[in-house]
Each structure stands twice: as C-alpha cells, then as structure tokens.
Design a protein around this nucleic acid. Sequence first.
DNA 1: CTAATTTAAAATGTATACATTTTTTGTCAA
DNA 2: TTGACAAAAAATGTATACATTTTAAATTAG
Lengths: 214, 214
Amino acid sequence: MLKKQQLYNQLKKHIQLQHWPPGTVLTQQQLAEHYGVSRIVVRDVQQALLSDGWLEPHGKAGMQVPGFSATEAQELCLLRLQLEPLALQLAAANMSFSQLGQAEDLLAYIAAHKHLAPYQRGELNWQFHRILYQSCAKPHLLRLLDQLHQQVSRYLGYQEQALAYADTSAAEHAELLTLLRHGDTEQAGKLLVRHITEAGNLLVQLLQKQQGAR
Amino acid sequence: MLKKQQLYNQLKKHIQLQHWPPGTVLTQQQLAEHYGVSRIVVRDVQQALLSDGWLEPHGKAGMQVPGFSATEAQELCLLRLQLEPLALQLAAANMSFSQLGQAEDLLAYIAAHKHLAPYQRGELNWQFHRILYQSCAKPHLLRLLDQLHQQVSRYLGYQEQALAYADTSAAEHAELLTLLRHGDTEQAGKLLVRHITEAGNLLVQLLQKQQGAR
DNA sequence: CTAATTTAAAATGTATACATTTTTTGTCAA
DNA sequence: TTGACAAAAAATGTATACATTTTAAATTAG
C-alpha cells in the first residue's frame, strides 16, 4: 500500500490514542524520523490531517495536535443537527430495501461485538448513519457530513467514557430503522434530532466536567 | 511569496477563466513544465485545489477540471440556505458597529466600481456576507461556509452572465444591512433566505438553459 | 483482423540534496 | 540583569534523481 496512506492511518490513530497528546507540536523532520519515511510523505499527510481537523497550524513551523473543548463539541453538535436531519429527509424518499438491510446488518454486527475498541465502535456507528444518508444523492452534503464526522470522531475516546450510553444509542438506532421501514419519515427525523442532541449533550457535559476539574 | 501560494492562485484563476476548460486532465508533469516549477509544488497545489473542489480525481493519474451542472448548483444553494441564515442569526447577537461599518464600506466600494471583473465582484460580495457571519463565533460553521463559497465561486463566470442581477443584489445587501442595524434579526433572516434563493434560481435556470442547448 | 500479451513510454511515489526561512542560542553593550 | 543584535541551529520550501506504478503502444498468436 502507499506509504502516504499508511502513515495517514497510523498517525491519526496515534493522535486518537493520545500517543501524541493534545498540544504536542509535530514537525516534518520529527515525524519523518520517527516513522521512517521521507519528509515528502509527511508533508502530504500533515496537509491531509490539517484539512481533516486532526492537526492545526502552529505558527510558521510545525503542526499542533488540537485539544478538546466543550464549546467545540457543542458547535459540532449544532452543525450535525442542521445537516443530518436534512440528509435523512432527502434520502428517505429514495431509500432502497437493500440499504435498510445493510444498515440492519451493521446494527447486528455492533450488537454482537460488545468489546469493540472505542474508535471502532464509533466508526461503525457512523457507517450506520452514513448508509441512511447515502441515498440523498447530494454529494456536497455527504462530503460535509463526512468532514463533520471526522471532527466528531476525534472525541470518540471521550464519548466512550460515557459508556452507559452505548445501549441507549443502539436502541435508538434500531427504532430509527423501524420508522424508516414503515416510511414514517417525520418521526424518524424527530428521533434523529433527539439522538444527536442526546449524544451531544452527554459529550458536552463530560467535557465541561473535565474542564472544570482541570 | 511562496511559489506554492502563487501557483495556487494562478492555477485557480486560470481554471476560472477557462484557460483550462472543464474536462481537461492536468498531470503533475504538465503543470510543472507549464508553470516552471517543480512537481513538488504542483502536488501541494493540486491537493489543495482538490479539497477546494477546483479539481477532481481522474482515475489513478492526473486531475480533471470539473464541469458545471444545474443539479450541483441547486445543491450548493440548498446548503447555503441551511447554514447561512443560521450563521446570521447567531452572529446578529454579537455584531459590533465596526463590523456593520466594514460591511457598509464594502458595499460602497462595490457600488463605486461598476466595472469589476466577475471574479472580483464575486469575491467582494462574499466578503460582505462573510463579515455578517463573522461574529457568530463558530469556527467550524465559518469553515464550512468558506468551503461552500469556494464551490459556488467556480460558477461566478456564469453568474455574471446574469448581469442584470447585480443591481438587485446590491439593493438587497443594503437592505440587509439596514435591518441588522435596527436589530431586526427576524426580517434580516427572511431577506437573506430570499436573497440566496433568488441568486440560486437565476444560476440554476441559466445552467439548465445551457445544458438544454448543448 | 481481433484480442491478448509484451514492451516502451509516461506519470506518480519517494528519497536525497540544496536553498531559504524561521527559531533558537549566545554574546555584548547599556 | 536586560534587551538588542549576530551567529548558529533547526525547520520548511524547492529541485533533482531514482523507483514504482500506470497507461499507451506495439507485437504476435489465433
């Protein structure tokens, strides 16, 4: 596989697992040496992670691992609320049974694997949402949603701390699917709003607690 | 200035002016040779333009200049409608008089320069909108809006063909500003929706006509 | 002639080397 | 001690060179 792709995945995971904790400044040279590749590769990856929100500029040299904040989480939640229900509504009209089936398979898989790593569970959950939105046939909207998810997924380590929520979330996912099967787009939309709001609030509260304690 | 930055601007402008018309496939080598820089620089720029929507992947080699479509324009309009009124509403609360002044200066400047190049006028118009949204204090939202504008600005060459609209647009901008000065956020929001919708419809109709004629 | 396979050409990925900019360090004068 | 300035170190920008992959062309078997 391309070294670029490899490094992209590896570095992203290392940031998520806080191998490089928030605030760390990563230079091209440092990363090139540490991961045993040339700076060219590092440059490409840094740029990609920058536009994905996994790194942020740091003066004129180096990039910094971003931190976490309740207000940022709040904003991401707001944006999800603004775009995801729209995507669902648009998608509902064209949704195929095979897609509903795919979504159901995912839920089953998640349910069957109770001991997934946080980031894996998060990724699968997003795939579930993503399938529901897929058939809205709005490439730009889907791109924005993917970007948003990227940002949110930085927080997955935290979200998982609110582990108790996993069951609630799964139940709501299932209910969402049922509503869509029955063509009740209206209710599905409302449930989605609740779903996103709940997850957002939990995350925000957790972050506020941590910020207070710091 | 950095060659990277220079090439970024130059290539973008050349695409906008259809020096490289839609459908053209641009390879690293080709661009490097044509613009007299190394492929390294070209790579960076291609990547940047890719994530800005000014180039799109083309198989495993080269990048392609994207075309124009009425449905894409429609989608972009939809997304603007979903996000910009929100930004305005959030910003209205914290808007300072100096910002309103800035916006007014921009309008005056645009009015005073009737013979601006299409892309310049488009850029200034966006700056006007941007100032109004600025104080919403939601970095991610603003980032999404900037991205959206990037996409829309690809169409500016077309938009300008609907030149008659320039006056209407300016009048609405002025009215928007008045409403904001008086703190009438509600009406300002409604006007903004109308404003975006009108511009969108004009563009979409123009594109549909062209597509039909093709 | 067609289609499959091999060979050549072209394009991209990656590394190294050099140039330029930025940051840090250290020195000296006030 | 402090602050400005100069020198050194480090980091990034850019070009060239080589490796690998991809695309196109040419050749040959059927």
